[in-house]
Write a protein that binds this DNA or RNA. Structure first.
Lengths: 392, 392
DNA sequence: ATCTTTGTTAGTAATGTTAACTAACTGTGT
DNA sequence: ACACAGTTAGTTAACATTACTAACAAAGAT
């Protein structure tokens, strides 16, 4: 058991302070040493020393003078977002979507590839490696400046141990795949469920910005949720938190598929399609079931009825989540983003009737980029900046 | 904004290390300086210094020699549970239940009083003060050694701001009552909901010991839950987490009382009584509705049916909680402790059918003492041991 | 008598603090 | 226009605190 050694001379505090300084810089964009000192309660000499080190490390830059407030002009500091880069990868269906980003999370290059089906675990790793090479070439980032890669995929993952227990789209099964990929790429790798990655993306750059209790509700092939409580991602005791597809919502006695939950069986997209079989038969590839259903509902009573039923049961799910977690914001994603204004209004009204503390109800704002942004940030989170030079 | 000053010479690390040392002592009961050093990765001289200070402070004691393992005998250290004391108070219905405890949470004296009804806020504070005086006298603890008092009550509390917005049993309404009581008693006071206090009690001394993700489900006059995730109490963005009485479980269109949720309306004890009106009329004060219902169910079909219905809907509630939070353990409390073995087995079977990760299902193990124990620990939590001597 | 284990002492390295300094600029009175 | 006081930014130097390593003393096992 390796406990991080608080070496007597305690690097621990230094690290904390360094992170705090960096945080101030990131927060303010541009700030002087003196202002950092005021904000952090650290003495000016101390801030100076820490800043100087971080300039040496390439994390900070002096970018000119600020305006005087009646004395010497301050030297403004800026976070050097270019110091390092991060890669992200998302498997969605049969496509692999990758990007390389700076430390602000801005994409520097992007790459997409259709994978051969059915997926073969080993080939997929090679695809990942090839994609990374290409991104590095395209962006001109040298490999040494890459901090790591975040990988999101549909299926069942155990982020803690780095294993993937079920994932048809990648062909990875059991065994700690994370280490295998790390070995192949020579990089730290973080593997997580795609919904979790999207949740993280929306939390740091999308609809969730500024909130500390966020639930990201996703309805697509399945129904799931990502949960951030008091600013921390909550995963549950066996990484099964947010499996809201198993809530007891809908016709309880009708659950043909043993692997799916009751809610998911009836109110995920396949479940809805099944219910709409009579009148919603011919769907083009890539079109939205909900959009189609809304269109039909304008003319056909049975479609209108089904749509209302779907909204109502989704709202039941939200009410349960809200009762238990009292989040500040509930982010609607997946096919839910196609619900029209009227639908959202209806759902909101129901919730106001049912529960005392209705959170903000907002649609996901990052679209398909959410997952990639989250994947990139999963690495940033794991590398709280100053840990960089701990390689000693 | 007062940020805890990491004085250059950093007391912060020292405090952390001191707490770690103390934790080792508490964990092992008796332990030597050398063993603490091995466990904590702190050097032996450092441990010695910290221990000596804590002996000065009265927090630790040397209690004799241990067995030699081939060398000098170790001097065993013990946590001095008597160093300070904590008071706890619980308002339940019209009775006030108080106790004074040592730092292990062991009760040293207890006191109960029936309050005049209807409760008058100011008189109740005097009752609290009188009770505390009596407990101090009885236990022989000098007032200076009292760290604080935890107060639990039925109603709506905002622990953050120390206000009570609705509480018939104490007559406290709005306004930050916590400060008022602190001024009257001359002690730090923590005010919280009774279910939260019971949750904390079971977490630290009852069924929840050893788990980090715990949900405490309470069915009584209302239905509520206390939630501990990753070892932290989770309260929600407006302290409304765990209001599971508002889940959409049961007959959705039948909610006569606007203030209660759907689940609570039908499946709390008053709700069940309402449903059982036909055959469960004459209940003595203090007897258990569930016990009576179980007795009736052995002979009468309608009682049997209702009981099964109650169990089933409680199980729905559990399934929803489990789907969202994936806790390690679900503690059943309130009237749920009267469910017999068969009932628990039935519920467990349902859950195994419905959700993938069924947690331990355990009845609350502390009985009516849970709330008081929790109240006492709420103070201990707020006083992480070594903060004691920070009064400088 | 030698080896082990526990606990302490002495000297050192790391970190951050305060006090005092230099640098650089604003504003005011003449 | 210009000197000078006042203000703000950043640095230097001396000091305090903390925990470390190395060496030693104490006490017991073999």
């Amino acid at each position: 058991m390796q406990v991080p050694k608080k070496t007597g001379n305690s690097k621990l505090v230094k690290k904390l302070n360094k992170e705090e300084v960096l945080q101030q810089v990131v927060l303010h964009g541009q700030i002087s040493r003196a202002d950092i000192s005021k904000q952090t309660q650290l003495s000016r000499p101390c801030v100076s020393a820490l800043v100087d080190e971080m300039i040496q490390e390439g994390l900070l830059q002096e970018v000119g003078m600020g305006d005087s407030k009646g004395g010497r002009k301050p030297i403004l500091l800026e976070y050097n977002y270019q110091a390092y880069a991060i890669a992200g990868a998302i498997f969605e269906g049969s496509t692999l979507d990758m990007a390389i980003a700076n430390m602000k999370g801005e994409f520097l290059a992007r790459y997409r590839k259709r994978l051969a089906q059915p997926a073969n675990g080993e080939t997929v790793i090679e695809d990942l490696a090839a994609g990374l090479d290409r991104l590095l070439r395209e962006s001109g980032i040298p490999r040494e400046r890459l901090l790591g890669m975040g990988v999101g995929l549909q299926g069942v993952t155990q982020r803690g141990s780095g294993t993937v227990s079920f994932s048809p789209s990648t062909g990875w099964m059991g065994s700690p795949i994370q280490q295998t990929i790390e070995a192949r790429l020579g990089l730290p790798v973080i593997i997580d469920n795609d919904v979790n990655m999207m949740t993280l993306g929306e939390y740091v750059r999308g609809a969730g910005v500024g909130h500390t209790n966020v639930v990201y509700m996703y309805v697509g092939t399945g129904i799931g949720a990502g949960i951030i409580l008091d600013g921390q991602f909550y995963r549950g005791s066996r990484e099964a938190a947010g499996e809201i597809g198993f809530m007891m919502i809908g016709p309880v006695h009708n659950r043909p598929n043993g692997a799916s939950g009751v809610f998911e069986t009836h109110y995920s997209i396949p479940g809805i399609q099944e219910q709409a079989k009579g009148f919603l038969s011919d769907l083009q590839e890539g079109s939205s079931v909900i959009e189609e259903l809304i269109r039909h509902a304008k003319q056909h009573a049975e479609a209108k009825e089904l749509l209302a039923d779907v909204y109502r049961h989704w709202a039941y799910g939200m009410a349960n989540i809200i009762s238990i977690l009292n989040p500040e914001i509930l982010i609607l994603s997946g096919e839910m983003v196609h619900v029209d204004g009227e639908g959202v209004k209806q759902i909101h009204e129901w919730l106001r009737e049912w529960v005392p503390e209705v959170p903000n109800l907002e649609k996901a704002s990052l679209g398909e980029r959410a997952g990639l942004i989250g994947a990139v940030h999963s690495v940033l989170e794991a590398f709280p900046f100053t840990r960089l030079l701990d390689k000693e």
